[in-house]
């Protein structure tokens, strides 16, 4: 199993092996599942209350479906861990946080200094993704 290199949660990490989406729907006691790029995150929505970990796999970081998958889970109210695994790159870490990822297990460990800079680089954001809890620039321009 690949190590989690960055985690932004206070709860105990889930160490159960993540099962595939297919296996998960047949296995009522599983608490961890892994989504592959072509799979529909919405298939998990009926089961969110029993899930503690969703791994979103990136065979290549340039396949952007996983970013939508994470955000869809968060939009549906899922509060468990969303862990990016696979081909993760420094330059997407901040954007992944914004889509709702809160744990990162890259295939190859990333330079911790560069990663820290990347996570902290953007003081402001143009969009409301809602799931990252950040206020968009337009909201700051027009305080309620």
């Amino acid at each position: 199993m690949v190590d989690v290199q960055f985690r932004f949660r206070d709860d105990e990490a889930v160490n159960d092996p993540a099962v595939t989406v297919d296996a998960f729907s047949e296995q009522s006691n599983a608490t961890a599942v892994r989504i592959e790029p072509g799979e529909d995150a919405r298939a998990l929505l009926p089961y969110l209350d029993r899930l503690a970990l969703v791994e979103v796999n990136f065979p290549a970081w340039t396949d952007g479906r996983g970013y939508s998958a994470a955000r869809i889970l968060r939009e549906a109210g899922y509060t468990g861990e969303v862990r990016g695994v696979g081909d993760l790159v420094i330059d997407m870490l901040h954007h992944m946080r914004r889509c709702g990822f809160d744990a990162f297990a890259p295939d190859k460990a990333l330079n911790p200094t560069d990663a820290k800079n990347a996570f902290e680089r953007w003081d402001n954001v143009y969009q409301a993704t809602v799931v990252d809890g950040r206020q968009a620039i337009w909201a700051k321009r027009h305080p309620a």
């Binding site: 970081w61 340039t62 396949d63 952007g64 970013y67 939508s68 955000r71 997407m92 901040h94 954007h95 992944m96 914004r98 889509c99 953007w122 954001v125 143009y126 969009q127 993704t129 620039i137 337009w138």
Partner: peptide, 14 residues
């Protein structure tokens, strides 16, 4: 333009 700049979900489209 502002919405699409660094939109975290849409930076690596097909």
């Amino acid at each position: 333009r502002q919405w699409s700049s660094f939109h975290p979900e849409f930076l690596v489209l097909p």
